[in-house]
Design a protein around this nucleic acid. Sequence first.
DNA 1: GTTTTTGGTGAACGGTGTTTACAAGAGTTC
DNA 2: GAACTCTTGTAAACACCGTTCACCAAAAAC
Lengths: 240, 240
Amino acid sequence: MTEATRRERLRAETEREIRQAARALLVESGRDAVTLRAIARKLGITAPALYRYYDSHDALLRQLCDDICADMATALHTDLAAETSGQVGCKVRAVCHAFRRWALVHPQEFALVFASPRDPLGADQFGSVFLQLAGPLIASNQTADHAEEEVPAVLHEDLVRFQQVLRDAVAEHGVTLADEVLNLGKIYHVVQSWVRLYGHVALEVFGRFPFAVSNPEPMFDSMLDQMLTDIGFEEDSAVR
Amino acid sequence: MTEATRRERLRAETEREIRQAARALLVESGRDAVTLRAIARKLGITAPALYRYYDSHDALLRQLCDDICADMATALHTDLAAETSGQVGCKVRAVCHAFRRWALVHPQEFALVFASPRDPLGADQFGSVFLQLAGPLIASNQTADHAEEEVPAVLHEDLVRFQQVLRDAVAEHGVTLADEVLNLGKIYHVVQSWVRLYGHVALEVFGRFPFAVSNPEPMFDSMLDQMLTDIGFEEDSAVR
DNA sequence: GTTTTTGGTGAACGGTGTTTACAAGAGTTC
DNA sequence: GAACTCTTGTAAACACCGTTCACCAAAAAC
């Protein structure tokens, strides 16, 4: 299976070390410390050697973003798998808690991936991470029904496109969704939930609540309760 | 009145130019371009001269943050003053729209002030800007009543503290608030509204919606409708 | 008129991204 | 095995960065 040349193996190993060093620098000392020369020092090589692996400092940072997204995805999937109750609401709650926990433990990574003025194309891994997590959860929530009429007509076009993206994401897992499971009302609530989830987590990580919150977790829980109720999980959200 | 020495006037003028140059660099080329040498070049002086005005590059960036907060505050107050209808809901809507507009026009400033892993003390101008805007608006909303029982008990302590901060902020404008106008339920909704407002704006500025939103403004309006309904402004929120 | 304070300079140190020319080793070809 | 190419590293250099230091001229204070 491993048709890798000796050279290819060495190259892959070096590349792994580069990413690892870059990540360590980001975590320990922030974005500005992720410097080509610092990475090279950690590997015991010189800075220009890194140009054999990445076109520029910027390209290396982009790679770092993707690595972070991938690691975050595995962290969230792990926490989701640990939630063994069959109740969808509990699973959603578990993923949201996992996201908050990850962001608080990895503030530098969170800032880099979720709060940098975006690369023009913005084509990174975040979108697929979101879909892989949210897709199956939405798909398994057969019960809730949302009035499609509440959704403003101007949003229909965008939401229909997102609906199709979600459908494709779920289809890759071999599930086909009926229209009523994925109507526009529900899609809209998913987006609104993301706004609130992201809003709370970012405010907490960046310390931007308008007053000092001594213990933000209950506030997060309370927001989740409201969010799950709005999205149609109230039946099992009380149990936790 | 102007007891300023000739030297003091010159110094103030130079300091003004420094801030102006720093701001221009931030806007034109991002945070990393705000460099002491670049600022000095714009002023036609040398970099070490800037140390006569600021202790370090970091201190200058902090000053920049405060300037940004101040400018944002005047922008928001201006847009609020332009909303002449007496309806509180319309004023809240105007401020929220102003915040979104400001963030979209000033993405670099927004990122610097609202999405940087915080300085330990985080003692900057944002808090007072928030209070000066939100305080009077909340005070003038005498109608809505929120059940205090809905607020989780664990949050009471923090919310009571925020309540006092709000009361003090409004008191500086010569208004004293009755307890029923500023009960914990309303305070809680204010915080939740900030979560949603910030969440949407940050997601839009950073391009972090999980799919491409062709025209985010209607989505923002829709969120505002929901938000104003939740907070108790539904009666006049339909009119806009 | 002398002294002190202020706001500037230029040189220097160690740090950064990036380019270039060059060398040594691995892999390939004859 | 010799010759050749490709890969991966180096060292030197360039221009930029924050910061410190010694110095200096002009303004202010006395």
